[in-house]
């Protein structure tokens, strides 16, 4: 969600830049598939330089296309910077209240079991506001995929501490760094849901490096495959950069992600 919604429709976005791959490239350096996902309808977003969310959006949309789910998927999206995906991706969306996406997705999936239903939430949305909703959905073995974009900060409101902020992390509401004596410890949502028998798949990936992006895309694909197969609740946490909310230089985002977040939230398949 943008913080200052506009009533004036934006001008028609520039056409998505694609390079035909069914013909030989006119020069070798352009031998790439496409610069944006097929389901992406525009490139106009409000996210900051260095933000990891657009990468997560892209691999999510690529997975939906590659699994041929574009015409049978419904996204349920919470409140955060990532909400803007509703404006950019050509699938059915239900934008819902902060924290409640897993409950809303439950209703959608029970009515339309043939559709791939997923939530897209941040750590503020899921770990802070809506921890009960995701845990209960997992315990019920709801056939949905919940995706948490975890940057350890309320990005949309300008950089305050969430329940997933890591120890030592400086935010506008933990100025000297998250101190366990005062602020307690971060909630490892992926580890919590992995303990519930209704959960079929849990993985934690990241978008801080090319390798991690490729791995995370495989995690997302596995989660959707298992959901469609009816295996149970599936969950993918994606660590993403928020240099603005971390108060670090843009270029240092991936390094900060690896040094701080991955130490607290190790990457890999958990269940």
């Amino acid at each position: 969600m943008t913080t200052t919604p506009t009533t004036t429709p934006p001008t028609t976005p520039p056409p998505t830049t694609t390079v035909p791959t069914d013909a030989p490239p006119d020069r070798p350096s352009r031998k790439v598939a496409a610069s944006s996902a097929a389901l992406q309808v525009g490139e106009d977003h409000h996210l900051c330089p260095g933000c990891g969310h657009p990468v997560a959006w892209r691999i999510l949309l690529e997975v939906i296309s590659e699994l041929d789910l574009a015409r049978r998927s419904i996204g349920v999206v919470g409140h955060g910077c990532y909400t803007n995906i509703v404006r950019l991706a050509d699938i059915d969306w239900l934008q819902c209240l902060h924290g409640r996406a897993p409950a809303v997705a439950t209703g959608v999936k029970r009515v339309r079991p043939e559709v791939a239903v997923f939530t897209l939430q941040g750590d503020g949305d899921m770990a802070s506001e809506g921890l009960a909703e995701v845990l209960h959905a997992a315990a019920r073995a709801e056939r949905i995929t919940c995706i948490m974009l975890n940057n350890g900060v309320f990005g949309d409101t300008g950089g305050q501490m969430t329940a997933a902020s890591v120890v030592g992390q400086r935010t506008k509401t933990s100025l000297e760094g998250r101190d366990p004596a005062t602020h307690g410890y971060p909630v490892p949502v992926a580890d919590l849901v992995s303990r519930l028998p209704g959960t079929a798949y849990v993985a934690r990936g990241g978008v801080g490096s090319a390798g991690a992006i490729a791995q995370t895309k495989r995690y997302l694909k596995r989660a959707f495959e298992l959901q469609v197969a009816g295996a149970g609740f599936t969950f993918v946490e994606v660590l993403t950069m928020c240099p603005t909310g971390w108060f670090v230089p843009t270029a240092e985002g991936p390094g900060y992600l690896g040094a701080t977040f991955e130490a607290t939230f190790p990457l890999g398949e958990i269940r």
Binding site: M1, T2, P5, T6, P9, P10, T12, P13, A38, L39, V41, G42, D44, I64, S65, L69, A70, R71, R72, S73, I74, V86, R87, L88, A89, D90, I91, D92, W93, L94, Q95, V108, R112, V115, A116, V117
Partner: peptide
């Protein structure tokens, strides 16, 4: 109502309190 069948067609639907639409279909 959302049925998930229109992805990629340019006619996908959304339910959103802010009703801002997609950038290609505001």
């Amino acid at each position: 109502a959302l049925d998930g069948t229109r992805g990629g067609t340019g006619r996908s639907r959304q339910i959103w309190t802010w009703a801002m639409g997609r950038t290609d279909a505001p």
